[in-house]
């Protein structure tokens, strides 16, 4: 089956590729892999005042995995932490028109979002808040 136009577009022009320094303030890092196919995905968010102001990703894997993570970073930007929690892999499947054999790529992206959010929370909880 051929990739959808949207997948091809994200693959050829990946959005927000790159990375932040892990120990930077407000940065959450999610690193996940799919043992079935060997794909590896790193997704990072930068948070200010509970809002994701920037997101970056690096993915080693197939076109669908790259497109899923690229789309995820686009969606994450501007969302609050709570809104970001709501992103589901099925949303990605729908947007990118992924065939059944590629659904696990979107699951990987959702896992990466969750991991990045959890990492951010963990870091935030560990540091005493100086804003209030």
């Amino acid at each position: 089956m051929a990739y959808s136009d949207k997948v091809v577009d994200h693959f050829n022009n990946p959005r927000n590729m790159g990375s932040f320094k892990k120990d930077e303030d407000g940065v959450g890092t999610g690193m996940v892999g799919a043992p079935e196919c060997g794909d590896v995905m790193k997704l990072q968010i930068k948070v200010q005042n509970d809002t994701i102001v920037d997101a970056k990703f690096k993915t080693f894997g197939c076109g669908s995995a790259i497109a899923s993570s690229s789309l995820a970073t686009e969606w994450l930007k501007g969302k609050t932490i709570e809104e970001a929690q709501q992103i589901k892999n099925t949303d990605i499947v729908q947007e990118l028109n992924l065939p059944p054999v590629k659904i696990h790529c979107s699951v990987l992206a959702e896992d990466a979002i969750k991991a990045a959010l959890a990492d951010y929370q963990k870091k935030a909880d560990g540091q005493p808040s100086d804003t209030k």
Binding site: M31, V40, K58
Partner: peptide
């Protein structure tokens, strides 16, 4: 197979992504 909880090998992932660069 997914029922076994495993810890993702973060170091290996970093290495793979760097190599990819």
């Amino acid at each position: 197979v997914k029922d076994i909880r495993t810890s993702p090998p973060a170091d290996l992932f970093e290495e793979i992504l760097e190599l990819q660069d």
